[in-house]
Amino acid sequence: MIDVAFLDATVRTLLGGVPLTLSLTAGSVALGGVLAALAAWGRLSGIVPLDWIARLYIFVFRGTPLLVQIFLIYYGLGQFRPVLQAWGLWTFFREPYWCALLALALNTGAYTAEIFRGAVLSVPYGALVAGRACGMPRLLLFRRITLPLATRQALPAYGNEVISVVKATSLASTITLMEITGLAQKLIAQSFRALEVFVCAGAFYLALTFVIIGLLRLAEAWLSPDLRPRPAARPA
């Protein structure tokens, strides 16, 4: 009943899409992280225009489907081709890879900004006051107190966001990028064996998800030294 040869061929084909899925994920998580940090800073800066720009960015990119954002950047910007060519940006927006990366980064950046903002706000006020009382300047206070505590707080929600980026990279297949879902769709259309291909492709995504969950657990343990068991008393 189970066609091992077909499954084997499917897995081999889909394996070819893994590097693209990973590179889209890594690229958009990195760029999205920068955008999120900027937007979170804008929201927390107390400077009204910056606050509103960040609010607008988050509202628009969280309120519209990612697929619309991808199409808007990849197909939509083609409407302004002469302008983009004059600015020398066309080589960038011509490539589906960069368009997908940009759309994914802008999208995850908006969600991540709110995670970062919440995490910074969760830092206990007393800890900041204590730091200030020791005479820490603002940057040192941020580096030694706010950043480690906020990072620990943001980690679980941030992990969920990274996992949803892995899944979101599948939309890149709609603009001709042959990552795992793109290859799976092609295989299904050729063989009409939807279930087998789905199971194989799904297994790849689940495996990626589990790897990310594992890495997050490690990071969480590393950032929570207060929860570790006490080191054994050293012999005197």
């Binding site: 996992i163 990279t169 599948s170 939309l171 709609t174 879902t181 799976a184 789905f198 995504y205 998800t209």
Partner: peptide, 10 residues
């Protein structure tokens, strides 16, 4: 754990 697009294709 699986992309929604994949479910729609299925």
């Amino acid at each position: 754990g699986v992309p929604d697009l994949l479910v729609i294709y299925l």
